[in-house]
Protein backbone atom coordinates (compact mmCIF):
# COMPACT_ATOMS: atom_id res chain seq x y z
CA UNK A 1 0.00 0.00 0.00
CA UNK A 2 1.26 3.47 -0.83
CA UNK A 3 2.23 5.83 1.89
CA UNK A 4 -0.59 8.20 2.84
CA UNK A 5 -0.14 11.84 1.84
CA UNK A 6 -1.62 12.94 5.11
CA UNK A 7 -2.62 10.90 8.09
CA UNK A 8 -4.27 11.67 11.41
CA UNK A 9 -3.60 9.39 14.34
CA UNK A 10 -5.84 9.56 17.38
CA UNK A 11 -6.35 13.23 16.59
CA UNK A 12 -8.44 15.26 19.04
CA UNK A 13 -9.47 18.87 19.16
CA UNK A 14 -11.14 20.26 22.24
CA UNK A 15 -12.54 23.72 22.66
CA UNK A 16 -12.72 24.89 26.25
CA UNK A 17 -14.47 28.03 27.40
CA UNK A 18 -12.58 29.11 30.46
CA UNK A 19 -14.31 30.90 33.28
CA UNK A 20 -13.73 34.61 33.35
CA UNK A 21 -13.12 36.59 36.51
CA UNK A 22 -16.81 37.34 37.08
CA UNK A 23 -17.73 33.67 36.78
CA UNK A 24 -14.92 32.66 39.12
CA UNK A 25 -16.17 35.19 41.66
CA UNK A 26 -19.68 33.80 41.23
CA UNK A 27 -18.28 30.35 41.96
CA UNK A 28 -16.89 31.59 45.29
CA UNK A 29 -20.51 32.20 46.22
CA UNK A 30 -21.49 28.74 45.13
CA UNK A 31 -22.73 29.33 41.58
CA UNK A 32 -21.15 26.05 40.54
CA UNK A 33 -20.21 27.18 37.03
CA UNK A 34 -17.98 24.77 35.16
CA UNK A 35 -15.62 25.08 32.26
CA UNK A 36 -17.35 23.81 29.15
CA UNK A 37 -15.39 21.53 26.90
CA UNK A 38 -16.50 20.49 23.44
CA UNK A 39 -14.77 17.46 21.99
CA UNK A 40 -15.13 18.66 18.44
CA UNK A 41 -12.79 15.97 17.17
CA UNK A 42 -12.50 12.94 19.41
CA UNK A 43 -9.69 10.51 18.66
CA UNK A 44 -9.93 10.40 14.88
CA UNK A 45 -7.57 8.27 12.81
CA UNK A 46 -7.72 8.79 9.10
CA UNK A 47 -5.33 8.32 6.20
CA UNK A 48 -5.64 9.91 2.78
CA UNK A 49 -3.63 8.44 -0.07
CA UNK A 50 -2.02 10.60 -2.75
CA UNK A 51 -4.44 11.37 -5.57
CA UNK A 52 -7.45 10.15 -3.62
CA UNK A 53 -10.71 11.99 -2.97
CA UNK A 54 -11.96 11.22 0.51
CA UNK A 55 -15.52 12.33 1.20
CA UNK A 56 -16.16 13.25 4.81
CA UNK A 57 -19.85 13.31 5.63
CA UNK A 58 -21.68 14.37 8.75
CA UNK A 59 -24.40 16.59 10.12
CA UNK A 60 -23.91 19.96 11.78
CA UNK A 61 -21.76 19.93 14.89
CA UNK A 62 -20.16 16.58 14.10
CA UNK A 63 -16.69 18.14 13.95
CA UNK A 64 -16.01 17.59 10.25
CA UNK A 65 -15.08 21.22 9.64
CA UNK A 66 -12.85 21.30 12.71
CA UNK A 67 -11.07 18.15 11.54
CA UNK A 68 -10.52 19.83 8.17
CA UNK A 69 -9.09 22.92 9.83
CA UNK A 70 -6.71 20.92 11.99
CA UNK A 71 -5.47 19.04 8.92
CA UNK A 72 -5.09 22.36 7.07
CA UNK A 73 -2.96 23.67 9.92
CA UNK A 74 -5.39 26.48 10.73
CA UNK A 75 -6.13 25.14 14.22
CA UNK A 76 -3.57 23.31 16.36
CA UNK A 77 -4.66 19.90 17.60
CA UNK A 78 -5.28 19.22 21.29
CA UNK A 79 -3.78 15.75 21.19
CA UNK A 80 -2.80 13.15 18.65
CA UNK A 81 -0.57 13.53 15.63
CA UNK A 82 -0.76 14.56 12.01
CA UNK A 83 1.67 12.93 9.60
CA UNK A 84 2.53 14.60 6.31
CA UNK A 85 4.09 12.11 3.90
CA UNK A 86 4.93 9.83 6.80
CA UNK A 87 6.56 12.48 8.97
CA UNK A 88 5.02 13.89 12.11
CA UNK A 89 4.35 17.57 11.43
CA UNK A 90 5.13 18.38 15.06
CA UNK A 91 8.75 17.35 14.40
CA UNK A 92 9.29 19.28 11.19
CA UNK A 93 11.65 22.23 10.97
CA UNK A 94 10.19 25.72 10.57
CA UNK A 95 10.79 25.74 6.81
CA UNK A 96 9.32 22.25 6.39
CA UNK A 97 6.30 23.24 8.50
CA UNK A 98 5.66 26.14 6.21
CA UNK A 99 5.94 23.92 3.18
CA UNK A 100 3.50 21.42 4.65
CA UNK A 101 1.19 24.29 5.57
CA UNK A 102 1.18 25.65 2.03
CA UNK A 103 0.76 22.21 0.51
CA UNK A 104 -2.60 21.80 2.27
CA UNK A 105 -5.08 24.50 1.31
CA UNK A 106 -8.68 24.96 2.24
CA UNK A 107 -11.66 25.91 0.05
CA UNK A 108 -14.35 27.41 2.24
CA UNK A 109 -18.12 27.27 2.32
CA UNK A 110 -19.25 30.85 2.32
CA UNK A 111 -18.41 32.66 -0.91
CA UNK A 112 -19.13 35.95 0.90
CA UNK A 113 -16.91 35.72 3.94
CA UNK A 114 -14.10 33.64 2.46
CA UNK A 115 -12.80 36.57 0.42
CA UNK A 116 -11.49 39.79 1.91
CA UNK A 117 -13.94 42.43 0.62
CA UNK A 118 -11.18 45.06 0.43
CA UNK A 119 -8.83 43.14 -1.83
CA UNK A 120 -9.10 42.83 -5.58
CA UNK A 121 -9.05 39.42 -7.20
CA UNK A 122 -5.45 39.98 -8.26
CA UNK A 123 -4.43 40.93 -4.72
CA UNK A 124 -6.26 37.96 -3.20
CA UNK A 125 -4.59 35.50 -5.56
CA UNK A 126 -1.17 37.11 -5.78
CA UNK A 127 -0.56 38.08 -2.16
CA UNK A 128 0.63 34.78 -0.72
CA UNK A 129 2.96 33.65 -3.53
CA UNK A 130 4.51 37.11 -3.49
CA UNK A 131 4.93 37.10 0.29
CA UNK A 132 6.61 33.70 0.13
CA UNK A 133 8.87 34.66 -2.75
CA UNK A 134 7.35 32.01 -5.01
CA UNK A 135 6.97 34.53 -7.80
CA UNK A 136 8.75 37.73 -8.78
CA UNK A 137 6.78 40.94 -8.50
CA UNK A 138 6.94 41.48 -12.24
CA UNK A 139 5.49 38.04 -12.92
CA UNK A 140 2.54 38.21 -10.53
CA UNK A 141 0.09 39.63 -13.04
CA UNK A 142 0.83 36.85 -15.53
CA UNK A 143 0.51 34.22 -12.81
CA UNK A 144 -2.82 35.65 -11.65
CA UNK A 145 -4.14 35.70 -15.21
CA UNK A 146 -3.04 32.11 -15.71
CA UNK A 147 -4.75 30.95 -12.51
CA UNK A 148 -7.93 32.85 -13.29
CA UNK A 149 -8.12 31.20 -16.66
CA UNK A 150 -7.50 27.82 -15.12
CA UNK A 151 -10.50 28.16 -12.76
CA UNK A 152 -12.73 29.53 -15.50
CA UNK A 153 -12.63 33.26 -14.80
CA UNK A 154 -11.99 35.96 -17.35
CA UNK A 155 -8.51 37.40 -16.50
CA UNK A 156 -9.72 40.87 -17.44
CA UNK A 157 -11.68 40.90 -14.17
CA UNK A 158 -8.48 40.78 -12.11
CA UNK A 159 -8.88 44.28 -10.75
CA UNK A 160 -12.46 43.85 -9.58
CA UNK A 161 -13.56 43.38 -5.99
CA UNK A 162 -15.33 40.27 -4.66
CA UNK A 163 -18.73 41.95 -4.39
CA UNK A 164 -18.77 42.40 -8.15
CA UNK A 165 -18.96 38.65 -8.67
CA UNK A 166 -21.67 36.02 -8.23
CA UNK A 167 -21.44 33.22 -5.65
CA UNK A 168 -20.09 30.68 -8.09
CA UNK A 169 -17.46 33.07 -9.42
CA UNK A 170 -16.37 33.96 -5.89
CA UNK A 171 -15.90 30.29 -5.19
CA UNK A 172 -13.66 30.12 -8.26
CA UNK A 173 -11.63 33.04 -6.91
CA UNK A 174 -11.19 31.14 -3.64
CA UNK A 175 -9.98 28.11 -5.57
CA UNK A 176 -7.50 30.20 -7.59
CA UNK A 177 -6.23 31.77 -4.36
CA UNK A 178 -5.54 28.31 -2.94
CA UNK A 179 -3.91 27.07 -6.15
CA UNK A 180 -1.56 30.05 -6.15
CA UNK A 181 0.68 28.45 -3.52
CA UNK A 182 0.86 25.19 -5.49
CA UNK A 183 -0.87 22.94 -2.98
CA UNK A 184 -1.01 19.17 -3.31
CA UNK A 185 -3.94 18.67 -0.97
CA UNK A 186 -7.22 20.58 -1.03
CA UNK A 187 -9.64 20.52 1.87
CA UNK A 188 -13.06 21.49 0.56
CA UNK A 189 -15.28 22.42 3.49
CA UNK A 190 -18.88 22.43 2.20
CA UNK A 191 -17.44 24.26 -0.79
CA UNK A 192 -20.50 23.82 -2.98
CA UNK A 193 -23.27 23.83 -0.36
CA UNK A 194 -24.09 27.52 -0.66
CA UNK A 195 -24.40 27.41 -4.44
CA UNK A 196 -27.37 26.86 -6.71
CA UNK A 197 -27.60 23.41 -8.23
CA UNK A 198 -26.49 24.36 -11.73
CA UNK A 199 -23.56 26.40 -10.37
CA UNK A 200 -22.71 23.61 -7.92
CA UNK A 201 -22.31 21.23 -10.86
CA UNK A 202 -19.92 23.66 -12.56
CA UNK A 203 -17.72 23.88 -9.45
CA UNK A 204 -17.77 20.11 -8.88
CA UNK A 205 -16.63 19.60 -12.45
CA UNK A 206 -13.87 22.16 -11.90
CA UNK A 207 -12.64 20.18 -8.89
CA UNK A 208 -12.54 17.03 -10.97
CA UNK A 209 -10.70 18.78 -13.82
CA UNK A 210 -8.11 20.18 -11.42
CA UNK A 211 -7.62 16.75 -9.94
CA UNK A 212 -6.87 15.32 -13.35
CA UNK A 213 -4.61 18.22 -14.40
CA UNK A 214 -2.66 18.77 -11.20
CA UNK A 215 -2.89 15.38 -9.49
CA UNK A 216 -4.48 16.91 -6.41
CA UNK A 217 -5.62 14.99 -3.36
CA UNK A 218 -8.91 16.04 -1.77
CA UNK A 219 -10.65 15.89 1.54
CA UNK A 220 -14.18 16.70 0.49
CA UNK A 221 -16.25 17.69 3.50
CA UNK A 222 -20.01 17.86 2.98
CA UNK A 223 -23.35 17.10 4.54
CA UNK A 224 -24.68 16.15 1.11
CA UNK A 225 -24.29 12.46 0.43
CA UNK A 226 -25.30 12.95 -3.18
CA UNK A 227 -22.41 15.29 -3.85
CA UNK A 228 -19.98 13.10 -1.94
CA UNK A 229 -21.14 10.01 -3.79
CA UNK A 230 -20.44 11.74 -7.04
CA UNK A 231 -16.94 12.97 -6.32
CA UNK A 232 -15.35 10.59 -3.81
CA UNK A 233 -13.22 7.49 -4.09
CA UNK A 234 -13.67 6.74 -0.44
CA UNK A 235 -16.21 7.93 2.13
CA UNK A 236 -15.99 8.44 5.89
CA UNK A 237 -18.95 9.24 8.11
CA UNK A 238 -18.54 11.36 11.22
CA UNK A 239 -20.95 11.63 14.12
CA UNK A 240 -20.30 13.83 17.15
CA UNK A 241 -16.55 14.01 16.76
CA UNK A 242 -15.91 10.41 15.80
CA UNK A 243 -15.61 8.52 12.57
CA UNK A 244 -18.25 5.80 12.65
CA UNK A 245 -17.73 4.22 9.24
CA UNK A 246 -15.39 4.40 6.30
CA UNK A 247 -15.09 2.43 3.08
CA UNK A 248 -14.42 2.69 -0.63
CA UNK A 249 -17.30 4.52 -2.24
CA UNK A 250 -18.76 1.58 -4.18
CA UNK A 251 -18.65 -0.68 -1.16
CA UNK A 252 -19.94 2.10 1.08
CA UNK A 253 -23.06 2.82 -0.95
CA UNK A 254 -23.71 -0.83 -1.71
CA UNK A 255 -23.27 -2.21 1.79
CA UNK A 256 -23.60 0.50 4.43
CA UNK A 257 -22.98 -1.07 7.82
CA UNK A 258 -23.45 1.45 10.60
CA UNK A 259 -27.12 2.17 11.52
CA UNK A 260 -26.40 5.89 11.25
CA UNK A 261 -25.00 5.50 7.75
CA UNK A 262 -28.00 3.43 6.78
CA UNK A 263 -30.33 6.12 8.08
CA UNK A 264 -28.47 8.86 6.19
CA UNK A 265 -28.61 6.89 2.96
CA UNK A 266 -32.28 6.05 3.40
CA UNK A 267 -33.17 9.68 4.00
CA UNK A 268 -31.11 11.15 1.21
CA UNK A 269 -33.68 12.84 -1.03
CA UNK A 270 -33.59 11.70 -4.65
CA UNK A 271 -35.91 12.40 -7.54
CA UNK A 272 -36.41 8.68 -8.01
CA UNK A 273 -38.58 8.38 -4.95
CA UNK A 274 -42.02 9.94 -5.33
CA UNK A 275 -44.56 10.64 -2.61
CA UNK A 276 -42.48 8.54 -0.33
CA UNK A 277 -43.35 7.65 3.21
CA UNK A 278 -40.70 9.36 5.27
CA UNK A 279 -39.37 7.14 8.05
CA UNK A 280 -37.06 9.42 9.95
CA UNK A 281 -34.54 8.44 12.60
CA UNK A 282 -35.99 9.50 15.89
CA UNK A 283 -34.47 12.10 18.15
CA UNK A 284 -32.30 15.12 17.71
CA UNK A 285 -28.58 15.43 17.17
CA UNK A 286 -27.22 15.63 20.74
CA UNK A 287 -25.22 18.65 21.80
CA UNK A 288 -21.48 18.05 21.48
CA UNK A 289 -21.20 19.64 24.94
CA UNK A 290 -22.89 16.62 26.46
CA UNK A 291 -22.51 13.70 24.10
CA UNK A 292 -24.23 10.44 25.08
CA UNK A 293 -22.13 7.77 26.77
CA UNK A 294 -20.78 4.72 24.96
CA UNK A 295 -21.73 4.83 21.31
CA UNK A 296 -22.79 8.43 20.63
CA UNK A 297 -25.57 7.24 18.35
CA UNK A 298 -27.28 4.88 20.80
CA UNK A 299 -30.17 7.19 21.87
CA UNK A 300 -31.31 7.44 18.24
CA UNK A 301 -30.38 3.95 17.11
CA UNK A 302 -33.22 1.51 16.45
CA UNK A 303 -30.96 -1.45 17.32
CA UNK A 304 -29.28 -0.12 20.43
CA UNK A 305 -28.84 -2.56 23.29
CA UNK A 306 -27.45 -2.29 26.79
CA UNK A 307 -23.79 -2.58 25.78
CA UNK A 308 -24.05 0.45 23.43
CA UNK A 309 -24.69 2.73 26.39
CA UNK A 310 -21.57 1.61 28.18
CA UNK A 311 -18.70 1.08 25.79
CA UNK A 312 -17.46 3.12 22.90
CA UNK A 313 -17.37 0.81 19.89
CA UNK A 314 -14.02 0.63 18.14
CA UNK A 315 -13.61 0.98 14.39
CA UNK A 316 -13.29 -2.60 13.16
CA UNK A 317 -12.66 -3.90 9.71
CA UNK A 318 -15.78 -5.73 8.52
CA UNK A 319 -14.69 -6.19 4.93
CA UNK A 320 -11.43 -5.33 3.16
CA UNK A 321 -10.99 -1.57 3.46
CA UNK A 322 -14.39 -1.18 5.15
CA UNK A 323 -14.37 -0.18 8.82
CA UNK A 324 -17.35 0.48 11.07
CA UNK A 325 -17.75 1.32 14.74
CA UNK A 326 -20.85 -0.57 15.82
CA UNK A 327 -21.39 -3.14 18.54
CA UNK A 328 -23.75 -5.04 16.26
CA UNK A 329 -20.67 -6.24 14.43
CA UNK A 330 -19.48 -7.93 17.65
CA UNK A 331 -22.69 -9.95 17.85
CA UNK A 332 -23.35 -13.26 16.08
CA UNK A 333 -24.34 -13.03 12.42
CA UNK A 334 -28.09 -13.27 13.14
CA UNK A 335 -28.11 -9.80 14.68
CA UNK A 336 -26.49 -8.39 11.61
CA UNK A 337 -29.24 -9.54 9.30
CA UNK A 338 -31.83 -7.51 11.23
CA UNK A 339 -29.42 -4.63 10.99
CA UNK A 340 -29.48 -4.80 7.21
CA UNK A 341 -33.28 -4.69 7.12
CA UNK A 342 -33.39 -1.01 7.94
CA UNK A 343 -33.98 0.23 4.46
CA UNK A 344 -36.71 2.22 2.88
CA UNK A 345 -38.47 0.54 0.04
Amino acid sequence: MTQPLIEARELSKRFTTRLDIAERVANLFGAGLEERTVHAVDGVSLAIRPGEVLGLVGESGCGKSTLGRVLAGIHPSSSGDVFWEGRNVAELSAAETRQAQLAAQMIFQDPMSSLNPRKTVAQAIGEAPLAHGMVRRGDVAAMVADLMERVGLDPSYARRYPHQFSGGQRQRIGIARALAVQPRFLICDESVSALDVSIQAQILNLFMDLRAELGLTYLFISHDLGVVKHISDRVAIMYLGRIVESADADEFFARPNHPYTQALLAEMPTVKQRRRVFQPVKGEIPSPLHPPSGCHFHPRCPYAFEHCRIERPALREIAPGHVSACHLNDAPPTARTTNALHETT
Partner: peptide, 21 residues
Protein backbone atom coordinates in the same frame (compact mmCIF):
# COMPACT_ATOMS: atom_id res chain seq x y z
CA UNK B 1 -31.36 21.05 -13.53
CA UNK B 2 -32.02 17.35 -13.05
CA UNK B 3 -28.72 16.40 -14.61
CA UNK B 4 -26.85 18.87 -12.39
CA UNK B 5 -27.94 17.15 -9.19
CA UNK B 6 -25.31 14.56 -8.35
CA UNK B 7 -27.71 12.52 -6.22
CA UNK B 8 -29.92 11.85 -9.24
CA UNK B 9 -27.18 10.10 -11.10
CA UNK B 10 -25.44 6.82 -10.80
CA UNK B 11 -21.94 7.07 -9.37
CA UNK B 12 -19.36 8.16 -11.91
CA UNK B 13 -21.83 9.54 -14.42
CA UNK B 14 -20.57 12.95 -15.55
CA UNK B 15 -22.41 15.98 -14.23
CA UNK B 16 -24.05 17.93 -16.99
CA UNK B 17 -23.81 21.63 -16.36
CA UNK B 18 -25.91 24.51 -17.50
CA UNK B 19 -23.40 27.02 -18.84
CA UNK B 20 -23.41 30.58 -17.55
CA UNK B 21 -25.71 31.91 -14.89
Amino acid sequence: LMRSVPANLERGEPLATIPGM
